[in-house]
Amino acid sequence: MDEFIYVVAATFSVLSILWYIKYSLGKRTPPLPPGPRGIPILGYLPFIGRSNNLFPKLTELGHKFGPIFKLNLGRKLCVVINSPSLAKEIVRTKDAVFSNRDASVANLAASYNASDVVFSETNSRWATMRKVFVREMMSTASLEASNELRANVVGKAVDYVRAHSGKPVKIGELTFRTELDVIMNMLWGGTIEGVKGEIIAAEFFSVVSKIIDLLGKLNVSDFFPVLARFDFQGVKREMEGYVKCVDRIFDDVIAQHEKKLSCGEIIKKQGKKDFLQILLELQNNQDCGHISISHTQIKAIMMDIVAGGTDTSAITVEWAMAELMLNLTVMSKAQKELSDVVGWGEDGRRIPHPEIEISRSSC
C-alpha cells in the first residue's frame, strides 16, 4: 500500500513538473492590461447593470484603470480602448492584426452569415470588394455627383426643424431618416419612384431601425457561445425575421434594377451609375475581370452601407447636440456662424449663398 502511494505521488510530481515546463516556461501568455475582477464563469457581467448603454460604466472603469483595460464578460475577454492614440494604433498602424471581427449572433444573421465586407474574413475577395466599395461609393467624384441630392435632403431636415421651432425635436430620429433618404438614393439612384418608391422607403425605414436596435441588444449567447444554439432571448430568430423583410425589399429593387439595366435605362436617365448598378455589373463580370460576387453578397454589402451610414451619423449628431446644449457659449458661436453663413429671409426661408454649396458638400 505504501509503495502504491509513493508511485502515485511520484507520478503526480512528474506530471506537475511537465505541466509547469509546458505552460510556464514554454509559450508565455502575453501580459494583459489591468481590469476589474469578476466572478467565476460570469466574469464582470453581473456588475455592468441592466441597461444596454455601457458607456457610463466603461467611462467609470476608464477613469480607474486607465486608457486600456480588460473586461471578462462571460467567456469573452474584451479589451477596452479609450485613448485616441491607442485607437489610431489599432485601426491604422496595426489594422491588419485587428481587422478580423468577432461577429455576434445578431451580426451574423444581419450580414447573411458574414457574406459582407464588415464581417467576412480578410482574404483577397474581401480586399477586392473593399477597393470597389471605396473607389465607387466613397470616391470624391461619387460624392460630388450626389452633392445636390444631399443638399436637398439636408435642406428638408433643416426646414422641418424650423417648422417645429419651440417644440421638441427627436434629433437622432431626424438624422437617421435624413441619412437613410440619402443612402437609398445613392444605392439605387431613386429609380423606384412615385407611390411605389414611397411605400418601399417607409417599409425600409421601419425595418432598418429595428435591425439597428437589435444589433445593440445584449445577448447571452454572445458571452457564452455554447448556449447560442438555444437562442434563449430569441435574438437570432427576431433578426432573421427582419432580414426576411429586407430581403423582399432588396429583391424587389434588384429585380427592377436588372430589368432597367438590361435596357440601358438607368445610365441613360441619370448619366451616372449608382452603387447597385456597379454591383450588378460586377456580378456579371462586366467591369472587374474575373471577379464576381453572388446575389447574397450584393444584399449583404447593401446592408453594410445602410447600417454603417445611418446609426453612426445619428448617434454622432445626437451627442454633438447634447454637448452644445450643455455649453451655451459654444452654442452661441454655432448659432452666429449659421446666421452669418446661411442667413434667413423675411419669409423665414434660407437665403442662397455662394459659399453654402461648399458647406453642404461636407454634410
Rank of each mutant, 00 (worst) to 15 (best):
I5Y: 09
S13I: 08
L15V: 05
S16F: 13
K22E: 08
K22M: 12
S24H: 15
K27L: 12
R28G: 06
R28T: 09
P34Y: 02
S51C: 10
L54W: 03
F55M: 14
K57S: 03
T59I: 06
E60L: 09
L61H: 08
H63P: 03
G66F: 09
L77W: 00
N82I: 02
A96Q: 14
S99A: 15
N113T: 09
V117T: 06
F119D: 03
T128C: 12
F133E: 00
E136V: 05
E136C: 04
M138F: 15
E148W: 06
A157T: 10
D159V: 03
Y160Q: 05
R177C: 08
T178Y: 00
M186H: 03
M186G: 03
G189N: 01
I200F: 11
V208W: 07
V208F: 09
K217A: 14
N219T: 09
V220K: 10
A228K: 13
E238P: 04
K244A: 14
C245G: 08
A255H: 11
A255K: 14
Q256R: 09
E258I: 00
K272I: 09
F275T: 04
L276G: 12
I278C: 11
Q283L: 04
Q286V: 13
G289S: 07
H290Q: 11
I291Y: 13
I301K: 01
D304Y: 00
G309V: 03
V317F: 13
W319G: 02
L326R: 15
L328A: 10
T329N: 12
Q335H: 08
S339K: 13
V342W: 01
G345A: 10
R350Q: 15
I351V: 15
P354T: 06
E355N: 14
